[in-house]
Computed example of a mutant assay.
Amino acid sequence: MSSFRILARVMRRNVQLPVHDFLVPAFFQPSQRCMSSTPKHNAATSPDPSSAPSVAKSKRKPLTKEQREYLSSALRVNQAGELAATLIYTAQTPLLVNAHPHLRPLMCHMYEQEAGHLKTFNSLIAKHRVRPTAFYPVWSVMATGLGWSTALLGREAAMACTEAVETEIGEHYNNQIRALLEMFEQWETEGYEVGAEFRELISTLRRIRDEELEHLDHAVEHDAKKAEPHWLLTNFIRAGCRGAIWASERV
Score class of each variant (00 low, 15 high):
3 S>E: 14
3 S>Y: 12
4 F>I: 11
5 R>I: 05
6 I>D: 15
8 A>F: 10
11 M>N: 13
17 L>K: 09
18 P>Y: 06
20 H>M: 10
20 H>T: 12
22 F>L: 13
23 L>M: 07
25 P>G: 02
26 A>K: 07
27 F>V: 09
27 F>K: 14
29 Q>I: 08
36 S>C: 11
42 N>M: 08
54 S>N: 08
56 A>Y: 07
60 R>A: 12
62 P>V: 09
63 L>G: 06
63 L>P: 00
66 E>L: 03
69 E>H: 09
69 E>V: 02
73 S>E: 11
74 A>V: 09
76 R>F: 04
81 G>P: 05
84 A>C: 02
85 A>Q: 00
88 I>L: 12
90 T>S: 14
91 A>H: 01
91 A>G: 08
91 A>Q: 06
91 A>L: 02
92 Q>V: 01
92 Q>M: 09
92 Q>F: 01
93 T>M: 13
95 L>A: 15
95 L>R: 12
97 V>D: 01
101 P>E: 05
103 L>T: 13
105 P>W: 02
106 L>N: 03
107 M>Q: 10
110 M>N: 08
115 A>V: 07
117 H>P: 04
118 L>I: 00
122 N>Q: 15
129 R>V: 05
133 T>V: 06
133 T>M: 05
134 A>D: 10
138 V>G: 01
139 W>L: 13
140 S>H: 08
144 T>H: 14
145 G>Q: 03
148 W>Q: 10
152 L>V: 11
153 L>M: 15
154 G>I: 02
163 E>I: 03
167 T>N: 09
170 G>F: 03
173 Y>W: 00
175 N>D: 15
178 R>P: 06
179 A>S: 10
181 L>M: 11
182 E>A: 11
193 E>T: 12
194 V>F: 02
200 E>A: 13
202 I>W: 01
202 I>E: 02
204 T>V: 09
207 R>C: 02
214 E>Y: 15
214 E>D: 11
216 L>R: 15
216 L>I: 05
218 H>L: 08
219 A>W: 05
222 H>F: 00
222 H>L: 04
222 H>V: 03
224 A>L: 02
224 A>D: 05
225 K>M: 07
227 A>D: 09
227 A>G: 08
234 T>I: 07
234 T>C: 11
237 I>K: 06
243 G>P: 02
243 G>R: 05
